[in-house]
């Protein structure tokens, strides 16, 4: 089945089984591999992408359902000229990434939060990121990155 959608601002079209997971279409068909697989059952959040601005698990979305939709992956967070999204920059300075396998999912989930809640509190950040599992950081520096660096940015 031919399925067309917008990926990180550009139009793409793929021939895929309609029930193919969006995750596999991104990684295997389009070779856009920033989106990771950690569990395949919507628990770990490593495959988080935005569909029409909402964070979802790409392992749980059949590609037939993204026909005509706008998909954003970690590769699409930075500005076209390469300037990092504030949350990407904050992850660098605050140590939000360690092994990095969960990082793309966290960044996408955080980007959704910040789009709807520009100055989130720590509990709001924790609730918004609770669908992303990290085993390296204990989450402290991830929450720091999302809250504090953006507060600084907004105040600057």
């Amino acid at each position: 089945m031919r399925i067309g959608f917008t990926l990180n601002g550009g139009e793409v079209a793929v021939d895929a089984l309609p029930m193919a997971r969006l995750l596999d279409v991104l990684r295997e068909d389009l070779r856009v591999t920033g989106t990771k697989e950690g569990c395949g059952e919507g628990e770990c959040g490593a495959c988080t992408v935005l569909i029409d601005g909402r964070a979802v698990n790409a392992c749980l979305v059949p590609v037939v359902q993204v026909q005509g939709a706008a998909v954003t992956t970690v590769e699409g967070l930075a500005a076209p000229e390469g300037r990092l999204h504030p949350v990407q920059a904050a992850f660098l300075t605050h140590g939000g990434a360690q092994c990095g396998i969960c990082t793309p999912g966290f960044l996408v989930a955080a980007a959704e939060l910040l789009a709807h809640t520009p100055r989130p509190t720590r509990p709001q950040v924790r609730e918004a990121l609770a669908g992303n599992l990290c085993r390296c950081t204990g989450y402290q520096k991830i929450v720091d990155a999302v809250v504090e660096a953006l507060a600084t940015e907004a105040g600057a």
């Binding site: 309609p18 029930m19 997971r21 395949g40 059952e41 919507g42 698990n57 392992c59 749980l60 979305v61 059949p62 037939v64 359902q65």
Partner: peptide
């Protein structure tokens, strides 16, 4: 029937569900 898929896709991936067809309601 397939709505948001958050349960159905888990069953399909784990092999516990393999229906002969799907009815996509999402649109």
């Amino acid at each position: 029937p397939l709505a948001g898929g958050t349960d159905v896709m888990v069953f399909v991936e784990s092999g516990t569900l393999s229906p002969p067809a799907f009815l996509n309601l999402w649109g």
